[in-house]
Amino acid sequence: MAMYRCSNMVIGYLNLLSLLASIPIIGGGLWLARSSKTCESLLQKPLLVLGFVVLLVSLAGFVGACFNVAWALWLYLLVMLLLIAALLGLTVFGFAVTGRGGGVQVPGRVYREYHLEDYSRWLRRRITEGRYWQAARACVVGSKACANIVLWTPLDYLQKDLTPIQSGCCKPPTSCTYSAGAAVAAQDADCYRWNNAASVLCYECDSCKAGVLEQVRRDWHKLSVLNVVVLVFLLVVYFTGCCALRNARRAEYGYPYGENHMSKMRPRWDYYWGRWWRDRRDQLY
C-alpha cells in the first residue's frame, strides 16, 4: 500500500510546490507590467500567462493526486503536455531571436553602443512599428534614465558604464562630431536626430530603439535559461503524474494494488467433457 500511494504523494507535493511557485511568477509579471526597466511588453504577457496556467494546472494535479480523481488527472496531464510543448516552443523561439545583439565596445570607454541592424529581423520589425515604439518611448521618458546622467562630466563618460537605454537614448553616438551645436559632414543619421532638449535627446534615434531591444534581449535570454530548468521540472512532474493517474484508476475501480485483473480464460472443451463423464460415473457407482 505504501508503494501504491508513493507516486500520488510525490505528485501531490510537487504540485503543491509549483502551486506556491506560481504566485511569485504572477507577481513578477505584474511587477514587470509596472516596472520601467524593460520598457517593452514582450516579457510581461508571457510571464503572466505562464503563471496563471501553472496555477490552474498545479491545482488540478494536486486535487487529482490527493483525492484519486481520475478525470482531474486526465485534464491535468493533457494541459501539462500542452504546457510543455508551448514552453519548449517559446524557449527555442527565445533563444533564436535573442542570439544576436550585445552591442559594440566603444574604444576608450566602459560602455557599449547598440545598432538596430545587429538584432533579429523579428525584433526589429516589432520595435519599429508605431504603436509599439510609442509605448516603449513613453516608458523610456518616464523612467528618468537620462536624468540620472544629466550632470555627468566628460570624465564620467570615460570612467562610468551606461545601461543600454542610457547609451542609446540619452546621448548621441560617440562617433558624432558637432560644430556650433550642429552635426557636420556625413555622419550617422542618429547624429542629426539628436537634440539637447530634455524632451527630445535621442529618443527618436535608431540607437534608442536598439538600446530598448538590448534590454529586452538580456531579460528574455535570462527567461529562456529559466525555461529550460522549468521544462526539466515539468517533465519530471508529468511522468510522475502518469503513475498517479494509474493509481487513481485502480482506486476508482476498487482494484487492490498488485492484484492480477486478467480475465479468466474460457475453459477448453475437454474440461466440460471430463466433468460430464465424472458426474455420470458417480451416478452409476
Rank of each mutant, 00 (worst) to 15 (best):
Met1Thr: 10
Met3Asn: 11
Met3Trp: 12
Ser7Thr: 10
Ser7Ala: 15
Gly12Ile: 03
Asn15Pro: 12
Leu30Ser: 07
Leu32Arg: 03
Leu32Pro: 04
Leu32Gln: 05
Ser35Cys: 02
Ser35Leu: 05
Lys37Tyr: 12
Ser41Asp: 11
Leu47Trp: 02
Leu56Arg: 01
Val57Pro: 08
Ser58Met: 10
Phe62Asn: 00
Ala65Ser: 15
Cys66Thr: 14
Trp71Thr: 11
Trp74Val: 14
Val79Cys: 14
Met80Cys: 11
Leu81Cys: 13
Gly89Phe: 10
Leu90Tyr: 12
Val92Arg: 03
Phe93Cys: 05
Gly94Met: 07
Val97Thr: 05
Gly101Glu: 00
Gly102Gln: 03
Val106Ile: 15
Val106Trp: 06
Pro107Asn: 09
Gly108Val: 10
Arg109Lys: 15
Glu117Lys: 13
Ser120Arg: 07
Arg126Leu: 14
Ile127Asn: 04
Glu129Gln: 14
Tyr132Thr: 12
Ala135Phe: 06
Ala135Ile: 07
Lys144Thr: 10
Cys146Asp: 02
Asn148Arg: 14
Ile149Gln: 00
Leu151Ile: 00
Trp152Phe: 08
Tyr157Pro: 05
Gln159Asn: 12
Pro164Asp: 06
Ser167Ala: 15
Lys171Thr: 08
Ser175Thr: 13
Tyr178Ser: 09
Ser179Leu: 14
Gly181Arg: 03
Ala183Trp: 02
Ala183Arg: 08
Ala185Phe: 11
Gln187Cys: 05
Ala189Trp: 03
Cys191Met: 03
Cys191Thr: 01
Arg193Trp: 03
Trp194Val: 01
Asn195Gly: 03
Ala197Gln: 13
Ala197Thr: 04
Ala198Ser: 14
Ser199Leu: 08
Ser207Gly: 11
Ser207Asp: 01
Val225Gln: 08
Leu231Lys: 04
Phe233Trp: 13
Val236His: 02
Val237Cys: 15
Phe239Cys: 07
Ala244Glu: 03
Ala244Thr: 06
Leu245Thr: 04
Ala248Asn: 04
Met265Thr: 08
Met265Glu: 10
Arg266Thr: 14
Arg266Lys: 11
Arg268Pro: 08
Tyr272Asp: 05
Arg275Asn: 08
Arg275Val: 01
Trp276Glu: 02
Asp279Pro: 00
Asp279Tyr: 07
Gln283Glu: 14
Gln283His: 10
Leu284Ile: 11
